[in-house]
Amino acid sequence: MKIFLKLFVLLGCAFAVAAHAKEIKLLNVSYDPTRELYQDYNAAFARYWKAKTGDNVVVAQSHGGSGKQAQSVINGLEADVVTLALAYDIDAIAQQAKLLPADWQKRLPNNSTPYTSTIVFLVRKGNPKGIKDWDDLVKLNVVVVTPNPKTSGGARWNYLAAWAYALDKYGHDDAKARDFIKRLYKNVPVLDSGARGSTTTFVEREIGDVLLAWENEAHLAIKQFGVDKFDIVTPPLSILAEPPVAVVDKVAKKRGTTEVAQAYLEYLYSDEGQDIAGRNFYRPRSEKAAAKYAIQFSPVKLVTVDEVFGGWQKAQKAHFADGGVFDQIFQP
């Protein structure tokens, strides 16, 4: 009899919980290399939110080139949060569709970037061409693989990192930097439309001596394809890549998800969120996680887009817009 009573109570509790538990759906529109990161993180956040509020959160993911994803959101893809490759793309959502305020980047700590990354070189095992620094990329016999900066966010970081190096080397002479970039892209045989496409070209098609890649992508490639095939070379100077995150206010408000969307992004800064970022080869912001994962990141001098280029708006206009420097270096 007792056991029945217990069962009854248990069942009752289950019902009570079930009646309360809401099923919340979020859509996170992200760029290409974050698939594995958010797969881990979404599960962790669902656990956290369930424990805190009792509600179930299911986060749906959409991945693609950063620019393309931003454009989809502008055209009406109902993203509660966006986690893109660069601030310029979220700026575009703020400017063109007015779905979030222009000062969105000030709303979360660290310029709304809970994790950072940088650009490194992935080379074939043993580094047969002896590639150490950006200078080695413009040598005549070196074949470089990088995606198209017009369509890929990661490729823009690659390009800007090379430019920052050239400015540094030639004493801030723009003409010389341009010549350096021109020689660099002469060594590129394939411009894939996205970062993942370039990795495939380098790894599967065995094209090229060096792949310019996100640090996390390079580590992931080694994890996926074996440590016996590739080495990571971190150049002495590279760029601080800050992939930002933001709640898309208007969409979240309309769908009634503002609170959970906000919590979703804030939890990225928590110990668990930072740990997941580190585990997926992103450089965590928190000192604790940074110390824990320090061993997997080589020391590198990092410059920022704001310091060298005066912000993304200027960088985009000067380099990647129609008729910008990137277009000019391909003119005969």
Binding site: G65, K150, A321, D322
Partner: peptide
């Protein structure tokens, strides 16, 4: 065409 679209042009 795709490239132009992604430049929001």
């Amino acid at each position: 065409i795709i490239t132009k679209l992604e430049e929001f042009d």
